[in-house]
Design a protein around this nucleic acid. Sequence first.
DNA 1: GCCAACATGTAATGAGTTACATGATTAG
DNA 2: CTAATCATGTAACTCATTACATGTTGGC
Lengths: 181, 181
Amino acid sequence: MAKENKSKYALLGLLNFVPLSGYDIKKWTDNSLRFFWSENYGHIYPLLKELEKAELVTRQKVDSEKGPSKNVFTITQKGTKEFLAWLKQNENPETYRIEILLKLFFSSKLALNEIIVKLENHIHQQEQLLSEYKEVENGFDHIKDKRIRLSAEMTMSYGFMHAEMNINWARDTIAKIKTFR
Amino acid sequence: MAKENKSKYALLGLLNFVPLSGYDIKKWTDNSLRFFWSENYGHIYPLLKELEKAELVTRQKVDSEKGPSKNVFTITQKGTKEFLAWLKQNENPETYRIEILLKLFFSSKLALNEIIVKLENHIHQQEQLLSEYKEVENGFDHIKDKRIRLSAEMTMSYGFMHAEMNINWARDTIAKIKTFR
DNA sequence: GCCAACATGTAATGAGTTACATGATTAG
DNA sequence: CTAATCATGTAACTCATTACATGTTGGC
């Protein structure tokens, strides 16, 4: 068997908040979930079709306030049940695949200053993320429901800590390289 | 086009240190690279075949000191060239898919103490990793070459900082939940 | 003799990305 | 009228995991 489809639960989880179209789902993952999750159309639309077939969601054609009409998907009882079962399950440990670390592991073939450039680049990317995250954070102010806000804050703080950790690590590493002889 | 095969560079990078069999490569990723990279046989063997066909590596049948004979792969000039080109390239930002965060984002459907259990579990997993990492670290003591040791240390420190950050985040989050009303 | 570790591989399946193709609607 | 955004989808492709299948060698 191949690995389990987690995208499925990402979609069901979002639909469990509110009915959405494929386009809306992409918006959510690009905004609120960007700290820790991503999806693309090429995965979303076929998956919605599957979920519909499995009777985990239903489709309604709805006129949009803005732009063309859309296919809005609503989670079914069966879908909710499957989503909640996943939610309660234990997580398996993640396997990591971090390209910059793979390169650094092999970096004895690079000049020290080439490595430093890579690390500076990494710092820049993470700072960029940090400022993007701050914008998403502002959006969270509008969340009225305290429990939902708590959920958003928990994941958001991970995003910040992760980016900060990356920056600290890169700075420490640059310092270590500069004292290398 | 689909995403680029980074496993290819992981294998070439290892073979650029020393000729290895598929089995050996798995050993390496399970040990020294486990901080940030993983591979499995179902990927390694077909990939080695491809690399051979593309003339990036060559195969030699070699008698093993222990156990049956093995297919040892050696990187070619062409392979080294391609590996170094990748090494010098800029990295694209990673996209993250962190299951526990996906669950926490949807966790308003869970009881607070269920979330705490999840976080405690996460802490436990990360502490487990930390102690496994320490064993790998001991193995690094044998590395004579100072530059190679530096490379190993840089990636190792990421592993430690990453696990520690996760633990800190989970602890902070538990504290936050406990004061929630 | 048997188990653990060594060693290699395929098959089945599904995950996930990118590029392409198409068209509707609205604001300027 | 035209550009931006809204909206949906397919095709082609590669990545990646798990399960399965097979056989060797050495130590106890």
